[in-house]
Design a protein around this nucleic acid. Sequence first.
DNA 1: CTACTTGCAAATCGTTTGCAAACAT
DNA 2: ATGTTTGCAAACGATTTGCAAGTAG
Lengths: 159, 159
Amino acid sequence: MEERIERIRQQLHEHSYKLTPQREATLRVLLENEEKHLSAEEVWLLVKQKAPETGLATVYRTLELMSELGILDKVNFGDGAVRYDFRSEDAEHHHHHLICVECGTVDEIHEDLLGEVEQAVSDKFRFHILDHRLSFHGVCHRCIDNVDLDEVSKPKPQM
Amino acid sequence: MEERIERIRQQLHEHSYKLTPQREATLRVLLENEEKHLSAEEVWLLVKQKAPETGLATVYRTLELMSELGILDKVNFGDGAVRYDFRSEDAEHHHHHLICVECGTVDEIHEDLLGEVEQAVSDKFRFHILDHRLSFHGVCHRCIDNVDLDEVSKPKPQM
DNA sequence: CTACTTGCAAATCGTTTGCAAACAT
DNA sequence: ATGTTTGCAAACGATTTGCAAGTAG
């Protein structure tokens, strides 16, 4: 955690940005809630517990800044708010998500599943791949025994 | 085109919805602009050329209805507006997108690339897959010769 | 010092909604 | 007739922005 913050402080300094208390509080909230996919407002509510004067706009600005630096990824699960996700330390690729249509949970997959697929796309379409986004909509392992799989209506993922 | 409209008329009737002139105009605009990924407002501007009295709210309601019926998919390329995409006729899976970070073009891939990957996910995570979303960010075949690939900055896809 | 940051409130912008009128069957 | 659909304008909610004051390095 501390080393992680320290590393980010460096990254900020390299671009002559400062690690203000508000930014640090925001980062700590995000680090304490990895895998939770918080929205800007949710982050803000938690940040205010550490630094009560912090404004929502500042949190938005911090999140935007971290996205630009490649520290965070923005993700959109179609519920009307952008959510923020730490990019894997190796910074290689965006990770994948399993979105449960029953309970709404979003699990992460950190394995890179797309090696061969990327090769195929790259060759077939002459497309130089820089990044990808992959998510699956379905029934998670927690719900799978509680639903009749034939009953689960064709999902119309909100997005 | 006409058969496609006719089929959708049937689908609507099965759910006791009507194919009104506004809905038909909206569908025609979408059919005439497949692969264009129009936003609601862009659709509306085109619809008004066919049926000038049509309101933007009606277009939104039509697009939402079509999504619920599984005729359209909503897609979000992170530019602030939801865009609409005809679901492949076989209605099997959402198709994939190649998003060019240079020129912004979005190409579609209709092949299903994920057969094996889905099997792996399904087994490994005990996740019953209903649908998926996959997109690649990179440099398209039109731009690939005009850019130094090492120059292309690490992309921070807006989403 | 002084450029970078912040908080606040107002502004934006895509999308949704209430409602009375118009319409389809 | 009767339930659906529409257009309009107002409401909404997430995000952004202008600006004067505050602060990190």
